[in-house]
Simulated assay, not measured.
Amino acid sequence: MAIRTRQSQRRRQALSRERIIEAAVELLDAAGEGGLTVRALTERLATGSGAIYWHVGTRGELLDAATDTVIAAALAAEPARAPDTPQDEIRVVALGLFDAIAEHQWLATQLAIQLTRSPWGPVTLGIFESIGRQVRALGVPQGNWFTATSALVHYILGATIQNAQIGEDTSVAEPDADRADADRAEFLDAASRAWQELDPGDYPFMRAIADQMREHNDREQFLAGIDLVLTGITHLQPPTGQAHIAE
């Protein structure tokens, strides 16, 4: 009995909250949200369910913790080249989130849940703080900070979540990068052909952009959208102390 007790104590000491969350992220990446069960996690960690609940809590709390961990890492990642301006800093944050959601397919749904149900939680706070500081550095008047920051956050997350879900095959248990790329190309090609076959009298614009939609680069399009939002913010909400001159 004493030997078993000492072994259990060593197992609990070696099992940390961080290790549990790391294993949860691994399961989510491999099999999606449906693959994250307490049973699968205990088998992966060679521990009991009690240790999971002790360190993290319920499955919902574990999902929240996994989301927070991945987003915190994305926001803290150091770029290859130091940003020169607040606009550059916003692009770095935006691309960090874009890449995190592209790498972790399950993250899109969890982010949407966090933002709508827990605007006071660490995920929402971290994203808004990272973008908001740069909006302030742009010189946007304080009365417009929330509106400008919300516009950027909504675009960044909306575009990244939509991008992650295009062509997604939820029937595949373990995501495969080559398969995902092929599915996406097939999806875009099908959509483009459908647009080209629309009635030219009813949808002249959609027919005109069909080839552009098929051939677009997701990251380039995403950054172009960021630049459009930033241009609008700096044009419509000039820095404090500067008069806005209408054109």
Rank of each mutant, 00 (worst) to 15 (best):
R6V: 06
V92I: 04
R184Q: 14
V25T: 09
T147I: 12
P119C: 07
Y203N: 07
R19Y: 04
Q196F: 08
T124L: 09
G158E: 14
G32F: 01
F222V: 04
A164L: 03
Q87L: 14
G48N: 10
E215N: 03
Q105K: 04
G167M: 11
P122I: 05
Q237V: 10
D183K: 10
Q87Y: 12
A66C: 04
V140L: 13
R136G: 08
A243R: 11
L111Y: 02
N217W: 06
E89C: 00
G34S: 09
D211I: 13
G201I: 05
T160Q: 03
A243H: 10
R179S: 10
E26P: 03
R117F: 11
N163Q: 12
Y53E: 06
S171A: 14
P238L: 03
R117L: 12
T67S: 08
R81W: 12
G96M: 01
R91P: 00
E247H: 10
L97D: 00
A23C: 02
L228V: 14
P175Q: 01
G241T: 12
A14K: 05
Q9F: 11
E61L: 03
A243W: 11
E61W: 07
I113F: 12
D169T: 10
I21H: 03
Q87H: 14
D178T: 07
T147Q: 07
A74E: 01
L95D: 01
R4P: 13
E22V: 13
